[in-house]
């Protein structure tokens, strides 16, 4: 829909661009949002000037926020939000950068509005717009932070449950700590992946370091054992504590088709036998 009458904000951004930019940068310097310790004045000048141009183009394009011009504004803000985060700005600093534009626009808006009613309406729509854009930088910062947290959680998960090779064709997964359903699922998927990578025929899942299991975790364990069998490998579960054995029976989880051993050593002995290795004590003369 073409605008019948250009908004006062559009006129201000067009006619008073130079003055607005100058006033805005001065406000930023004075208000502490500029952070000269983190950013050169020339870079601040560039960012401010670029933002004003994009904003002007978007305001001219109309108020519907899904157009290409508004997309460019948001993309620019997302870009500086992450570049500023890397420079050490806080999300508050970045939001303040956008919010500080209000003051610079205010005077010009009043001059060009004429009557008070028009000014009130223009002021309201400008404030709403700037607030919206400032909030957008905050949500971008939050999303970035969430991504970092998720990645760190994944990395911790990988670190906390290494799949180790015990012998040719034998893998072990020593699990430590409380198992929740999500963690068990991730760990089991990586175990199956390692089985393919290493060509291991037997995998031992040792749960000596696991205090309790619930139904879901027990079901994930059984699922893994079954999936490994479909791939052509066998799983042995070792280190089941008496409490866990009791829980498994109480929960009615069927482990009859799963090899279980009391200790990792017992499981290893079984695994060696399954892979065709013989185990015996060396006689005196063979000892080094």
């Amino acid at each position: 829909m073409p605008p019948s009458q250009p908004s006062v904000l559009a006129t201000v951004l067009d006619q008073d661009r130079g003055d607005v930019l100058k006033a805005w940068i001065q406000d930023q310097m004075a208000g502490g949002a500029a952070r000269p310790d983190l950013m050169q004045p020339s870079e601040l000048q560039d960012q401010s000037s670029q933002f004003l141009d994009l904003l002007a183009a978007a305001v001219n394009a109309g108020s519907a926020r899904d157009g290409a011009a508004w997309h460019a504004v948001r993309q620019f803000l997302a870009g500086i939000s992450s570049s500023r985060a890397a420079q050490g700005f806080t999300p508050v600093d970045t939001a303040t950068f956008v919010l500080s534009l209000k003051q610079a626009l205010l005077g010009r808006l009043q001059q060009r509005s004429g009557d008070a009613t028009r000014f009130a309406a223009e002021l309201w729509s400008m404030t709403t717009l700037i607030d919206e854009l400032a909030l957008y930088t905050t949500s971008v910062a939050l999303e970035a932070r969430e991504r970092i947290i998720a990645r760190q959680q994944e990395e911790m998960l990988e670190l906390s449950t290494p799949v180790v090779k015990l012998w040719d064709g034998i893998l072990a997964l020593p699990m430590i700590g409380t198992l929740d359903s999500a963690r068990t699922q991730v760990v089991m998927e990586s175990l199956l992946q390692r089985i393919v990578q290493t060509g291991a025929e037997v995998a031992i899942i040792d749960i000596t370091g696991v205090p309790t299991v619930d139904t879901l975790v027990a079901q994930h364990l059984i699922k893994t054992v079954t999936a490994a069998r479909l791939m052509g490998a066998e799983c042995i579960i070792s280190g089941i504590r008496p409490q866990i054995a009791a829980t498994i029976v109480h929960l009615g989880v069927d482990l009859t088709n799963v090899d279980t051993k009391a200790t990792l050593a017992d499981a290893f002995r079984l695994a060696l036998r399954r892979t065709g290795h013989a185990l015996g004590r060396a006689t005196g003369s063979e000892r080094a």
Partner: peptide, 20 residues
């Protein structure tokens, strides 16, 4: 003998309810 089933395929097959 069925050979080379991929882990993701095996997991999905078990969840589907087929353990062959």
């Amino acid at each position: 003998v069925v050979t080379g089933m991929q882990p993701a395929v095996a997991i999905t097959l078990v969840e589907l309810g087929l353990d062959l």
